Amino acid sequence: MGIDQRREKEKQIRRNDILEAAEHVFFTKGYNQATMDDVAKAAEFSKRTVYVYFNSKEQIYFEIMIRGYRLMIGLLKQKIQNAGAVTAIESLKQMGDVFYSFSRQHPEYFKAIIEYETAEIDFESGVTDEARDECYALGEEMTEYLVGLLGQGMDEGEIRKDLDVVKTALVLWSCVIGVLNTAHKKEKYIRHMHSTTPDELVSAAFTLMLESIRN
C-alpha cells in the first residue's frame, strides 16, 4: 500500500469514527440538543478536526440518515432474496413488513429518514452535493423497485392496468411513510382513544393500500 492509499484509508477511518460517535450522541441526546462540541468529545478529536471532515452538524445527521437508508434497503434485498419467486402482491406485502420491522427495530434511523422524507433537509446549506446525490440514488432505487413490482403485477393480472406506475409508486411510498410515522409517534393516542395497536393500524393500512390497486 502506497503512502497516498494509506493516508486515504486513515482518513476514512477517522471519518467513520466521527460518524459513529455522532450517531451515539444524536441518538442518546437528541439531534437538536447535541452540539459539535459533544460530537468532538465523543469522537475524542478536537472540534477543528471534526470540521475537517464534516462542515456542519446538518451534514453529519444527513449522512447518518443515509446509513439508515442503506440498512433498510439491505434488509429489503435480503427479504427478497430469501423469498424467491413470488407474485408482485406478495412482494409488496413483504416490503411493507420490512419497512414496519425496520421502524420498530431501528427507531432512531427511522426517525432520521422520516425527517428527510417530510422536510427539505437535503437543501440545508451544510449538506454536500455528494451526500445529496447518494441519498437521491437510494430513493430512486426504492422507487424503481416499486415501479417494477407494479408493472409485474399488471402483467400477472393482479394490479389495475389503468394506473400510472410511477405516480402510484410515489403515492404508495408517501402513504407508507405517513402510516409508519403515525404508528411510531402516536402509539399511546391510538391505543387510548381507539383501542388499536400500531400493528393493527399498520396491517389495516397496508391492506387498504393493496386493495386500492388490485385489479
Rank of each mutant, 00 (worst) to 15 (best):
S101Q: 15
A85W: 03
M193N: 11
R132A: 05
I177L: 06
L180Q: 06
D129P: 00
Y189E: 13
A119S: 13
V179P: 03
Y109A: 13
G157A: 03
G151Q: 13
V98P: 06
G151Y: 08
S174V: 00
D162T: 05
S174L: 05
T182L: 02
K186I: 00
G96F: 01
A119G: 05
I114M: 10
E156T: 04
K111C: 06
H184Y: 10
G84C: 04
E115D: 14
M154N: 08
D164S: 06
G148I: 01
S195I: 02
Q94P: 00
K93Y: 08
E90I: 03
E156N: 06
E108G: 03
K161M: 08
C135H: 07
L150C: 04
V171C: 10
Q94V: 02
A119Q: 13
L163T: 04
G151P: 02
M193S: 14
A88H: 01
E156K: 02
D122L: 11
A88E: 02
R104W: 02
K167V: 08
Q105F: 00
K188M: 13
H106S: 11
T182W: 02
T143L: 15
W173K: 14
F110N: 14
R132N: 04
N181A: 11
W173V: 01
T182F: 04
L138G: 08
G148C: 07
D129V: 12
E158Q: 10
G139Y: 01
Q105T: 14
Y145S: 05
